[in-house]
Write a protein that binds this DNA or RNA. Structure first.
Length: 496
RNA sequence: GGGGCGUUAGCUCAGUCGGUAGAGCAGUUGGCUUUUAACCAAUUGGUCGUGCGUUCGAGUCGCACACGCCCCA
């Protein structure tokens, strides 16, 4: 088998023959057709006119789009997210033009000029006075009623999915609208959008395994960033008091319905703010996105109902463990031994070398997180799992940090930033110790970042919001792949 | 990593007890030509994911592998 015909079938052969015939007569893929109107606008302007009014107005229009239906002399073209019916009777044309109409296939892209009218059944229709085949489609479209439902094909050939599945187009249009709204929202609050390195010599800002690459000219290994955090805070040191970045992160981890190796993150930092301010901001942002996307503060996700007009619950890690694990009082959290005993009693597995806070979070992750349906801010994260967060002034074991959980999924993570350079240096040392003892997700020591803090970072709060999961929430999508245009898939092996 | 389910025509899917492959849509030919999942008549289309095995005989049973989906870790 050759590359050219590896999946050719009779339907494609027939279309290729049509294309060959077209090539013999004229330019097969003509350029320069001027599409003067759009189906969406014409429909909006003239849908309400009567048959008689349209006849009197004699509206001329020039449209272009992909043929998605053929019903005798009627064909329907898809033009953006709208459609327009064209009346194009081959009996009204002669010779080569009549033959061209007969040879149209579903999927072909045509340009049409004519006058608008209403059919006997009242549908706004363009009567073709002239037409031009702009692009011959060589591959048959999926079933016109059922569309393309095979999930694997929808992800691998997203272009086909987008042609035939309106629902899929809607998701990505909503995603775009959310991205635009977030930018406007932060700009309205005087945040500045910035771009920081995606290729980093020291990967920092999150506990996660990075992708490694190599820069030839510098002969130096580099990492794709797992987070932009440390660079954004350097900018706060530099005097940009409100910054945000909305772009891709990369983590060398497994794929799931909630994980893709590259994913989009919003991170923002606000000087002279505390983590409580960011919780307020987050509630406001989610409420406004809900209204922007769905026109209401209420939304339904995978069978659960949320109302973002209501304040989100704010509960500490230990509060929630007490609630969900039938723990009576705080003595269970007093020492490493007592927390380990609690983990054992709940059948939560942990490594004996882990510090108390890490065992505590393992309990939380396994026994609490996915049970939290309604929006909840989790607060009072242990210091051992929060190496970049500010230590709480009253309780040195916890940080001024929160995560937002909705529908059992982590949507956001924020905290008052650690701006004490000496404390930060100690935290990096602990991370390096964990890395040396085999934790591939632990952080590197970033000396330059400590240097930046030594110049002085104002009291600051920062947050990251997972945009893919946020889009899942607002589009009622069960899998992250449904909100990624081109999700990562395993390479299909050649079966030759 | 473990378990479950799936993979049959271009698409969406049937396929009974293991007996030699079916439908709708799309396509082709003709008719109709203001239709609405257009209609009428005729008709084409298959390495049943890949490989091995059991069997006189495998889409169907077994094993392995590939890819996907779901659940668990």
């Amino acid at each position: 088998m050759t590359e050219d015909n590896h999946d050719e079938n009779k339907l494609i052969v027939q279309r290729r023959e049509k294309l060959t015939a077209i090539r013999a007569q004229r330019v097969a893929f003509p350029n320069g057709f001027v599409k003067e109107h759009s189906s969406a606008v014409l429909t909006q302007q003239y849908e309400s006119k009567t048959k008689e009014e349209l006849e009197e107005l004699a509206i001329g229009a020039t449209l272009a789009g992909r043929i998605i239906r053929m019903r005798g002399p009627f064909i329907v073209i898809q033009d953006g997210n709208a459609q327009m019916q064209i009346y194009i009777n081959n009996k009204s044309f002669t010779g080569e033009q009549a033959e061209q109409i007969k040879s149209f296939d579903l999927g072909d892209i045509i340009g049409v000029h004519g006058e608008l009218f209403k059919t006997g059944k009242g549908e706004l229709t363009l009567r073709a006075a002239s037409f031009e085949l702009l692009t011959k489609s060589l591959r048959p479209l999926p079933d016109k009623h059922k569309g393309l439902t095979d999930t694997e094909m929808r992800y691998r050939q997203r272009y086909v999915d987008l042609i035939v599945n309106e629902q899929s187009r809607n998701i990505f249009q909503t995603r775009s609208r959310i991205m635009r709204f977030i930018r406007q929202y932060f700009e309205s609050l005087d945040f500045m959008e910035v771009e920081t390195p995606m290729m980093q010599v020291i990967p920092g800002g999150a506990t996660a395994r990075p992708f490694i690459t190599h820069h030839n000219a510098l002969d130096q290994d580099m990492y794709l960033r797992v987070a932009p955090e440390l660079f954004l805070k350097r900018l706060v040191v530099g005097g940009f008091d409100r910054v945000f970045e909305l772009n891709r992160n990369f983590r060398n981890e497994g794929l799931s319905t909630r994980h893709n190796p590259e994913f989009t993150m919003l991170e923002f930092y606000q000087a002279y703010a505390r983590y409580q301010d960011l919780m307020d901001l987050t509630e406001d942002l989610f409420r406004k996105i809900a209204i922007e996307v769905g026109g209401s503060s209420k939304l339904s996700y995978q069978g659960s109902e949320y109302d973002f007009a209501q304040p989100f619950a704010r509960l500490s890690v230990t509060d929630l463990i007490k609630q969900h694990c039938a723990v009576e009082d705080d003595s269970a959290f007093a020492s490493t031994e007592s927390v380990a005993a609690l983990a054992n009693s709940l059948d939560v597995h942990f490594d004996d070398a882990w510090p108390k806070g890490k065992i505590l979070m393992e309990i939380f992750d396994q026994k609490v997180e996915d049970k939290l349906d309604q929006p909840t801010f989790i607060t009072e994260y242990p210091i051992e799992v929060s190496p970049l967060a500010r230590r709480n002034e009253e309780n040195p074991e916890i940080t001024d940090r929160f995560e937002l959980i909705i529908g059992g999924r982590e949507l956001a993570n924020g905290f008052s930033e650690l701006n004490d350079p000496e404390d930060q240096a100690e935290r990096f040392k602990e991370q390096v110790a964990q890395k040396d003892s085999g934790d591939s997700e632990a952080m590197h020591f970033d000396h330059d970042y400590v240097t930046a803090l030594e110049y002085g970072m104002p009291p600051t709060a920062g947050e990251g919001i997972g945009i893919d999961r946020l889009v899942m929430l607002f589009t009622d999508s069960a899998s992250i792949k449904d909100v990624l245009l081109f999700p990562h898939m395993r390479l299909q092996q050649d079966q030759d």
